[in-house]
């Protein structure tokens, strides 16, 4: 559904994307994980027509984003990292303008608006001005708006950044539901647990390059199954083990009281890129 070949983007001497290639299958939930400045948003901006690529090619649902950008844009909905709603218009008006931009009929716009606002549990706020909504509500309106024209691909750029834990989990549920209805989801995040919980496959992006790409389970397996953290002379040291017995034996040899834990995606990122995900 999404094919990217050797995508590059330079801002002056800064190489924001340095030869990214990947494929995302239909109905897949793909996460792009990396620290701030890794090139996550640049990829989405290029794919959705907001930023010009320097070189490389990409296709959305078979449409070449450079040769046929209009056809490519018809395939996708996008939820940007920052709120980009018209604050002086109502929720329904924002949805209506989006539907018009995508050439939807009046009846379809009205029906779809009602359906999607129900879906994101904001039916009672249809006539409210966007400026009067909370951050979490605005985010849900953005997701509803992006789904308005029934896109085959949904791009979500850091969809839960700045939201509290409860709202974040609510949006995770929504994203899972969207995927279960057949939409391909391309998600960027720097929240490890978000990628681990949501994604079918994860790409680790660092300095504009993909350092690893696989299922969360396979990425974790490359590092080990069990780990414990201890304070070494140079700071925190994490030791990884393929089985529990070996890990427990290692802990027993250390005098400090340490807790054995399962290896997670953050360990995989740290080991495979040599960096922490969080800025």
């Amino acid at each position: 559904m999404i094919v990217i070949e050797d995508l590059r983007k330079a801002y002056g001497r800064t190489q924001a994307l340095d030869g990214v290639s990947l494929e995302v299958g239909a109905g897949e939930l793909f996460a792009y994980l990396g620290p701030n400045g890794a090139g996550k948003s640049t990829t989405i901006r290029i794919l959705t027509g907001l930023t010009r690529l320097s070189s490389g090619r990409a296709w959305l649902g078979g449409a070449d984003i450079s040769a046929d950008p209009i056809a490519a844009k018809r395939q996708c909905g996008v939820v940007m990292q920052h709120i980009n709603l018209d604050g002086d218009l109502s929720v329904a008006e924002n949805m209506d303008i989006h539907g018009r931009l995508f050439g939807m009929s009046a009846a379809d716009r009205a029906e779809r608006t009602a359906q999607l606002l129900d879906y994101v549990e904001l039916s009672d706020r249809a006539k409210s001005l966007v400026n009067t909504l909370s951050g979490g509500m605005k985010r849900r309106v953005m997701i509803a708006r992006a789904l308005m024209h029934r896109p085959r691909i949904l791009f979500l750029d850091e969809p839960t950044v700045g939201l509290d834990a409860e709202i974040r989990r609510r949006i995770w549920g929504l994203i899972k539901q969207i995927q279960s209805e057949g939409t391909t989801v391309f998600l960027t995040t720097h929240y490890i647990e978000e990628a681990e919980f949501l994604a079918d496959r994860v790409a680790f992006l660092d300095q504009g390059r993909i350092r690893a790409l696989d299922t969360p389970r396979a990425l974790i397996a490359q590092v080990g199954k069990w780990a414990f953290d201890r304070l070494g002379p140079g700071g925190m040291v994490t030791e990884y083990f393929a089985d529990r017995d070996a890990a427990q034996a290692a802990i027993a040899a250390v005098e400090d009281a340490l807790t054995l834990r399962r290896v997670n995606l953050e360990d995989a990122f740290l080991t495979l890129t040599g960096k922490a995900v969080r800025p």
């Binding site: 907001l50 209009i70 844009k73 940007m80 980009n84 709603l85 018209d86 989006h98 931009l101």
Partner: peptide, 18 residues
């Protein structure tokens, strides 16, 4: 204002319009 403060211009740029 739409472009720099509210980022609405992105909504038009990502829509299938010329």
């Amino acid at each position: 204002i739409a472009r720099f403060y509210f980022h609405i211009f992105e909504e038009f740029q990502s829509a299938p319009i010329s």
